[in-house]
Design a binder for these strands. Structure first.
Lengths: 68, 68
DNA sequence: AACGATTGGGGTAATTCGGGAC
DNA sequence: CTTGTCCGAATTACCCCAATCG
């Protein structure tokens, strides 16, 4: 149980394209998931979406074997 | 371009149709293999399956040795 | 202010899912 | 025992173009 800092939040955000690549789907599909509330989306000031890496990786279950 | 996050999972995934074409079988058959646990399947948030390319390639040929 | 690339939104075709039977 | 096809429904992919991102 490591306590994180207070004011600094080191949350890695992924772009729709990144998430789309991880799931092998179209970026538009990731947008659909966000609209459906299936994934948490952080909106930029311009309206673009950013996704929490930890959440995405958590959704990417089954832990496929590492290539190599 | 955004960036090249090293933390991003670089696992290549294939669609049922892709795997079906590689094995020269019906996509439905690939689904049966996944249901039987014969192959690892990663599900999208919509329920569609994605298969690990390395796993499929390994199944296609037991030993991907160099071939004339 | 300008540039290249990505994203968002809407709409339609293609693919995939799930079950049951032969 | 395994595979391919049928049906209905859901999900996904690709088309357009304007806006946003870095």
């Amino acid at each position: 149980m490591q306590s994180a800092p207070s004011t600094t939040n080191v949350t890695s955000l992924l772009t729709p394209g990144e998430v789309a690549t991880m799931f092998r789907v179209d970026p538009k599909t990731v947008t659909r998931w966000a609209n459906a509330g299936k994934i948490t989306a952080v909106r930029t000031l311009g309206g673009h979406r950013r996704f929490v890496e930890t959440e995405i990786r958590g959704l990417l279950s089954t832990v496929p074997a590492q290539q190599g």
